[in-house]
Design a protein around this nucleic acid. Sequence first.
DNA 1: ACCTGAACACCGTTCAAGT
DNA 2: ACCTGAACACCGTTCAAGT
Lengths: 210, 210
Amino acid sequence: MPTPDRTSLPEIVGAGRELLELGGLDGLTMQAVAARVGVRAPSLYKRVTGREALIALVADATLRDLAAVVQRAADAAGADPRDRLRALARAVRAFARDRPAAFGLVFAPGSELRLAPERLEAAAAPVLAATAELAGADHALDAARTFTAWANGFIGMELAGAFRLGGDVDRAFEFGVEALVGAVAGSTVAGSTVAGSAGAGSAGAGSAGI
Amino acid sequence: MPTPDRTSLPEIVGAGRELLELGGLDGLTMQAVAARVGVRAPSLYKRVTGREALIALVADATLRDLAAVVQRAADAAGADPRDRLRALARAVRAFARDRPAAFGLVFAPGSELRLAPERLEAAAAPVLAATAELAGADHALDAARTFTAWANGFIGMELAGAFRLGGDVDRAFEFGVEALVGAVAGSTVAGSTVAGSAGAGSAGAGSAGI
DNA sequence: ACCTGAACACCGTTCAAGT
DNA sequence: ACCTGAACACCGTTCAAGT
């Protein structure tokens, strides 16, 4: 009769997520994960290819949560696409504040993570739906990229403590929300008339995207 | 008669910058730096406190270069603040493409870097000057933060290969530039009338900021 | 004064040996 | 089948010893 397994993949990923928030990526060591799940480091390799794969699983779980949060926020915001965009931006910001290290991992500029395309699409879908309504199908993708770039950029800078010139950061965020909502709604955009071609995609590695 | 020094701090920082672009932060090891400057790893500690300090020096040098690039782009763009913003965004994007790893380091969401305030101000000054003209003193800081967040976010996502839904990324960039220039110019911003107070600043650690 | 080899405390990862 | 200790190849960093 075989003894019951002493740990599991979900437990390992969970330990990784906790350690990530506690001590950053440096704190996410195989030994620390192993200790947290009550096992020795070599045993982890029964369920995970290695540290990089574990980090990818942590990122995937984070992105899955983010997609759910974002979907819920959009649903709760009602029919007005402007309100949905505002709600999306605020929901992502709250998510990032709640799990800063995980957010930083998923949206890190240099990471070589291969996030699952279906997760990316799930996270991006609500923004795209809103911008399609506001900017029209031709500009939906450009508008979604503009809005997402601003939101991710703002939140990333805020997490990094990059707003150091004083002023009210909450006010700057709301200013940005309104500026982007207005801009994406097209009233000030000197829109080109190029059709929004959805090509093959460059399929590069990278962080959460659209 | 003492023998001449076999290396120097600038040489070490230069080696660090090269290694960063060649192999990312993981490739920036003390041993690799030492080998590149023709010395053994322990000797580096004569000129640098440790690896983290070296990384901070690399980031500082990068930010210094970026500030110079940005200043030059603004100067060359002429008197129209809209043109200056367009030129700034494109200059930062070109800089990031030229040195992606260094850009990622300086603008990483989670980094614990303590960039020098004077470098940050130098890098931010041209944007602030342009937004002050476009949005007025009351909204200059909010507008600069909005524009910078979008630019950093877009470039970071592009570097990470995060635009995977097809379409033309260059077109998305230009769409974003025009959207932000228009938004920052205030035509669509439902501006609050709160005065732009430049308070003490939260003085947190973090990446390049404004 | 600068440089070095040796050493220490960590990593990630592999693997033969245990149960 | 899962787990482990021991080992290996790396790290960053310290320090006594060399010149």
